[in-house]
Every structure is written in C-alpha cells, then in structure tokens.
Design a protein around this nucleic acid. Structure first.
Lengths: 334, 334
DNA sequence: CACAATTGCGCAATCGATTGCATAAATATT
DNA sequence: AATATTTATGCAATCGATTGCGCAATTGTG
C-alpha cells in the first residue's frame, strides 16, 4: 500500500525529531538555521519528494501567487498571443496563470470575475466582453484594491491600468491607405460603440476622411459585433445602398475576410474594383489570396506588458494607473 | 479608510452572535440550520459582499478544484482550440483552469509540472514537449494517483488516459490522396519519432505507399521539429536528391505552408507540378493560395473530451485508463 | 570566571473554512 | 408530567505552512 497523502513539513520534522518551524525555515533558506540541520532537512525533503503545499502557504500569506486572465475567446489568434505573452512573464516571476473565456457574454464574464475573486487572484488582466453591462464586477477590483489591467477593449468608465494599441492612429492609417489607393467612397464596419477600441478606430476613420476633404457619410458606417456573419450582412447592406462604397475598412480581420470572400464570389475583383482592409493582422490575413492589408496588433508584446504592469502593481504596490498605448503598424498587402 | 481584509465567516458570525460553524453550514445549505438563521446569514453575507476564500476551503478539503493544462505553445491554433474546449467544460463543472506553455522545452515542461504539483491540481491535461526526456515528472502523477490525460502528443511509456486523433489513418489518407492525384514519388517530413503521434503519421504514410505498390524509400523521409524553418531546410534537401520527390506529405500545416511558399518562389507550380499536403487544418490552410489539403484535427472537441475524461477521473474515481481516438477528416483542397 | 551577546531552535497562534461530536433547547410520546 | 426524540447550534480540531516571541545553549568580552 502506498501512503496516500503528500509529505508535509510535519512529517519531515517528526522524522528528524525537530520542529516544523525549523523545517519551514530551512526550506526558505532562513539564516537562523544552522547549516547542518539545513542540509539534513533538505536532503530528507528531496528524498521523500516533498513539495510545499501552495494552498496552505497561500492561505497563510494571504496571496495566491496567481494572476487571472479573461478574454472573450481563447481560440483567437490575437487573444491567444496575449495569453502566451502573459504566461511567459508570469511564469518567470513565479506566478500561476488562471484563464477563462467570456464568449463575449456579459453574464459569463461576471460569473468568471466572481470566481476569480473567490480564488483570490493577486491581479486580473481582462479584455472585456462586447456585450455591454454596468461593469460593477470590475469596479469591485478597485474597491478591494486588487490590481486590474484592461487590455485591447477598454472602457473609460473604469479608472485603472489599460493597455491598448493606438486604435485611432490605426483607423486613421488604414483609411488613409485606402484613400491613397484611389478609393473615393469608403465604408466602415464598426464594432460595438461601448468599447473605446472601436470608438477610436472609427474616429480615426472619420479623421482620415476629413483630412482628405471627404465628407463623413453616416450611411456608410455599419455597427455590429464583427463576427464573420455580421461582415457578410453588413457588406450586403452597404452594396445595396443607392450609391454603394468602393472600399471598406473592416473593424477586424474576420469581417475583412468574410467580406472579401462574399464580394469575390460575386465577381467583384479585389483590389482592382474594390478595396478592403482589416484590423488585427490575424495570421490568415497574410496568406489569403489576395492578402489583406491590415493593422498589426502586437498581441504577444501586449501580453508581456500587461503581465509586467500587473506584477509591478502587485509587488511594488505601485499606486498610479497607467495607460500604455502600443504603436500599431500598417501592413500593406495586396 | 477602508477595511483591508475581505469578510470571513467569522466576521459574519460575530456580527450575528452565532458561531462560524453555523455560518459555514448555512452557506452550504445544510438542512440542520433553521430557515430563520439561514436567511439572516445569507442576507448579511450578501450585504457585506462575502466570497468564500477558496484557498482556505481547498486546503481543508484537500482539493484545489483546479485542473492544469500544459501545451507546447498557447498561441497555436490547434492548442488554443483545445484549451478553449477544456475551459468550457471545466468552467461549467465549477473548476478553474490553470495554464502554462512548455515552448517545447523539456526543462520548462518539468518545471511547469512541478509547479502544477505544488499547486495541487486535481488533474493535468498535457500535450508533451517535442524535446525528449525521461518523463519522470509525468510518472509522478501515476504514483500519486493524480488524474492525467495526455492529448495529441502521447507516448506509449506512460500508462494513463490518452486522447489522440487517428494519426495513422490520417497519414494513410493524405498519402492515398496524393497517390490518387497521380503523384508517384512522395516524400514525408516527419516529426520527432519519440512521439507516438508522428510515428503513427509516418506509419500511415508507409502503409499507403505499400498498399499502392510503391516501395518505401527512406531517403525521402526527413525527420525534424516541424518548425517553419525546418520545412524549408527539408524541402531543399529533398529537392537536391538525385531523384527528387514530386509530392510531400508534411507532418503539419506549418511546414506545409513554408514548403509551399519556398517551392512557389522557385517557380514550381502547385498542385500542377508538385503535391503538398499538411496535417492539422490550421485556419490559414483554408485561405492560403492555393489552399492546402490537410487532415482536420478537432481541437475544440479534443479539449472538451479531455476535460470530461479528467473530470470523470477526479469525481468518480474512475480507475481504468482509456485511450480515445478521435476520427480525422481529410480536407481536400486545391 | 562571571556576565553579555549571539546563535539555533521550539511553542503556539494564525490564515479561513469545514466537520465530528457534544450539548442545549424544543417538540413528541406515553 | 416525565421521558424520549428531534432540531438547532456550538466547540474544538483539522488542513499545511508561516512567524513573533521566548528560551536555552553556545560563544564572546572584560
């Protein structure tokens, strides 16, 4: 028969006829313990395969050594890149990463956030769901003084750390790019306007139009959830206008792709007859035919920065809130 | 000034002049508590925003309500799909998912696994790193009787639950497909042969050749780590052979893509002059030009199954080990 | 050699929730 | 009305690691 339970410091203490406190101290390299005892303890700990019980230690220390990350969908290139970046930094710093996805549903997000609170995460990194809500669940973090970093999709209402790409400049640049390509009547597929991200992209779009002496025509802007199907619906709508656009700035690459396929299937040549640009630089946008010009969002970097930011808040009790704006890059393709 | 610490059952107990045990029981809907006290307790708990401290509860209950997942790289479509599937099932069952990536490095994997052990995960789902090792860290799970599920990349050496796709049939089918397209001399880019996955894919390839009366030529098979650069190196090698192949079955889509681009840049027309197939159905393989035929690996489903399997082991103490073989699907494209 | 300073270690409380057992109070039974 | 039963609650130990304080043994000082 095998011993069921993992060895604890008490087991080691009993074996060596010393106290658990000494074992605990020895394993933490406390200088108050003599070298001799220390060696004995460490040797035995290794031989019995002792692993400290993090739950006990965390309980006592009132910290979980865990940071939470919540994204709308794990299985999306940009988000998984962010997660990857967070994990890298967090792991190096000795933190565990717990993860959850909201599926863009406010209710699931709330439920997740409560669960993260119950798990006493030391900090939370979140890209909030598209579905709007009152964000009470996030304000709790402020009240309890738990570090919180919003990334990518942020809202002005919550005063905390934020990491975003320069959506305004991004929107401006892709639109400018379309104009430079000779397109005159440029539509825009915008994301939910409760999120700063999509507001900024749209503002960049509008600014680029105005700078180039093109008047802003509201009928050319369609706001939706930027899912693949939404892209198709929106393109249909736009193309049915009395004077349809000759180019579209899509709020993300997903809709850019679905729009492109839809138009191509209808015999519209891209980019000769019609211009399409996206936003995000999803990996597919490079390899589709024709490849899509888009704005690169540095996901991995964003994750690293988010992790660094939250760790500095956790460990140095940094009080001030920062908003990091990462530069975007226009990637010109076919 | 704000109260620093979260309210505990003791705070609630003191407030109501009752004992902590009663509070604890009330919050668990224990029938031994009168309706009246229960209501009082729940009302107060809500009003002070009480959230049970999972660390304390887990310590006492000797379970973490956590399942760990380790993948080589989070930011890879197939893996993030698996993670997404795991998260979905785990969250519904009230479990937290902790995640880490090995970057295909044996040392990091070992370190991660130890950290997962220290965190006392209730179960671990892992796709092991390519870099070979002795797998002692995984055997620990068997010894300690902690549920373990290997997925995608598995090894025969460890006796535990496994979820794989039918790599043999997959390898067989794509090769068969190339043969049917009229290719005669088919090369193979194989992954590390310490992983069952890649062994099976290769065996499927060999079997398909033999079934079609084509003799197996070892010089046409190159084994590497299937990174993008590896694909280019391997193609160069193959094309420099005295009698180069006219088609390649690449061990994954990444190498299929890099090979394709390499060949295309050298004026070789695909699929007219040369056949390429991949494995995994990464999203890009559908939209590249020409689109790549490949084998679909149902990542999301695999994640769900892995989570279900591990939960059944955790909760029903299911003793027997299963190996689930998920069907693959040949996706014929250009 | 007597006393002070240092070193090495143990005691016991603590973190917050859980639970077997005991006890008091309320209700039922004869 | 007296005893048996049920109901509602509390006590105290437990999970495993940590740490302030205290005490004894060792080394140092004059």
């Amino acid at each position: 028969m095998h011993k069921k339970t993992d060895p604890t410091i008490h087991d080691i203490a009993r074996e060596l006829n010393i106290s658990a406190s000494t074992v605990s101290r020895a394993l933490q390299n406390n200088p108050r313990i003599s070298l001799k005892t220390m060696e004995k303890i460490i040797a035995l700990a290794n031989s019995v395969g002792y692993r400290p019980n993090t739950m006990a230690s965390n309980l006592r220390n009132k910290r979980s050594n865990t940071i939470g990350i919540v994204v709308p969908l794990i299985n999306r290139y940009f988000f998984s890149a962010v997660i990857s970046g967070v994990e890298e930094v967090a792991f190096k710093a000795g933190y565990t990463v717990v993860i959850s996805q909201s599926n863009d549903l406010a209710n699931k997000e709330i439920s997740i956030v409560h669960s993260m609170l119950a798990n006493r995460v030391d900090g939370l990194i979140i890209s909030i769901a598209m579905q709007p809500t009152n964000y009470e669940h996030l304000k709790t973090f402020r009240k309890k003084n738990i570090p919180l970093v919003l990334f990518d999709r942020t809202i002005a209402e919550i005063d905390t750390n934020k990491i975003v790409v320069d959506d305004f400049m991004g929107g401006f640049r892709v639109t400018q790019h379309l104009i430079e390509q000779g397109f005159k009547r440029i539509g825009h597929m915008a994301g939910p306007q409760n999120l700063q991200t999509y507001i900024d992209r749209k503002n960049g779009y509008v600014e680029a139009l105005l700078k180039n002496g093109i008047s802003y025509d509201e009928s050319l802007v369609i706001t939706n959830s930027l899912r693949s199907e939404d892209g198709i619906d929106a393109v249909q709508q736009l193309m049915n206008l009395p004077i349809p656009p000759d180019a579209i700035f899509c709020g993300n690459d997903t809709t850019a792709l679905s729009s492109m396929i839809y138009l191509r299937d209808r015999g519209i040549r891209i980019p000769e007859d019609f211009g399409i640009v996206g936003f995000s630089n999803e990996p597919f946008s490079k390899v589709v035919s024709p490849s899509i010009s888009t704005i690169a969002q540095p996901g991995f970097l964003m994750g690293q920065k988010a992790a660094e930011l939250i760790l500095s808040q956790i460990e140095h009790k940094e009080k001030s809130f920062k908003t990091l704006v990462l530069p975007t890059e226009l990637i010109v393709r076919e």
